[in-house]
Design a protein around this nucleic acid. Structure first.
Lengths: 214, 214
DNA sequence: CTAGAAGTATTCCTAATCGAAATACCTGCC
DNA sequence: GGCAGGTATTTCGATTAGGAATACTTCTAG
């Protein structure tokens, strides 16, 4: 029963969840991701943030869109968790607005990282959804989906590996490096899982090429 | 450049993507998931569909909410991919509307499963996001997050294992059984990855209890 | 030298999705 | 007799996704 309300039945009136202005830990996960990006201390524009999240977060947390990053920044500023200023750029390029985390923001994101309940990861595995519908596919098409997924996984693994190597020297990146190592193993596992399923399919419906040796 | 349009610049007028009534393969992924559920041939209500997807899809594809399932069903019916009828229930219980896939729906979902491009899975790994922010946590809290995630993964693995066992006898469930086996391995890997990261953290910041033996 | 591609930077709009709550009726248990 | 819990669906607001528009710059190929 959210909103802490008990007596919402009875009148039929519309009741709004007012989110209790003092209770600020109720931001959506993506806000925390953006604030987390800022918690490393640099002053960044929305565009920078998008690039950072594409590079680092994307291995384990779907990178938010531009529009969302910009609206999160506005929300964070309104909440007092970030401050911004315009900077004029040297030559030509358009002025930009850069954001910096505030002390309140630091305290809030630290509290979130420490205290929030651990919820299950969200996975939307398109390739598996299609394989689940195997009765609609020819074995050859199932293989094709898996081969492509295996290749994608290996590309991701290589990228995580390269990024981990690039990050391991900076002490400030110790924990991001740890998660990059995790990502390296995760994508290695995805690759191997695809290979294992390929073998399972082979067992169910042997490909014309294989197993025909005399 | 979507909508196939080239000359959208120039007027400033608002242009709508009309989605080309004839080109029907442009449904969102969740529509295909629901149609896929129906493609096994049974006549199901929205409520049934929600339960099915909670049981089977959830291992690899985030289960859609009731509201979305019901609106997808309406969309599928309007597109001619599903038909529905009301059934009165024997004793008491409220009437319900059950949906069945049409031949067009079968053809469309088959085409989607066969021809759609293989796109990368979407992962939003909350626990990793928090570990990525390790500079905000005490080692003890990092361990706590990982331990909980490891336990969650093992619970999911056990459920996938149990479901796979229950499904393996029906020939019609051959492919769903294959993806359940995949899920079993996937969650085993998640569990092991959590354990490995726990070990990495141990190496970075030894727990007071451990390594103090003389 | 000039058109266009690509990068920087931000905003707008729409559709997709979530999740809680409202509604409604039944069964079973204490 | 009441209430917890399962079936069944709708409604609403908030969140999230992601393309398109805008605008200005630099680089590059013809």
């Amino acid at each position: 029963m959210p909103c802490g309300g008990k007596g919402t039945t009875g009148t039929g009136r519309r009741l709004r969840c007012v989110a209790d202005e003092t209770n600020t830990r109720t931001l959506p996960a993506t806000s925390w991701a953006v604030l987390g990006l800022l918690s490393f201390g640099e002053e960044l524009s929305g565009y920078d943030l998008k690039k950072w999240s594409d590079w680092s977060l994307r291995f384990f947390y779907w990178s938010p869109s531009f529009s969302q990053i910009y609206s999160e920044l506005k929300r964070l500023e309104k909440a007092g968790y970030a401050s911004s200023r315009m900077v004029a750029q040297d030559t030509g390029t358009r002025d930009k607005r850069v954001y910096r985390i505030t002390d309140e923001g630091m305290a809030a994101v630290r509290e979130w990282a420490r205290e929030a309940p651990v919820d299950p990861p969200v996975l939307k595995h398109g390739p598996m959804l299609r394989l689940w519908l195997g009765h609609l596919l020819e074995p050859e098409q199932m293989r094709e989906v898996l081969v492509q997924h295996r290749e994608f996984s290996e590309r991701m693994r290589l990228r995580a590996e390269a990024d981990a190597e690039g990050a391991q020297d900076e002490a400030a990146w110790a924990y991001p490096t740890l998660t990059l190592k995790w990502a390296e193993r995760y994508y290695a596992s995805e690759r191997d899982l695809a290979a294992a399923m390929l073998a399972d399919i082979e067992a169910l419906a042997p490909a014309p090429e294989s197993g025909t040796r005399p």
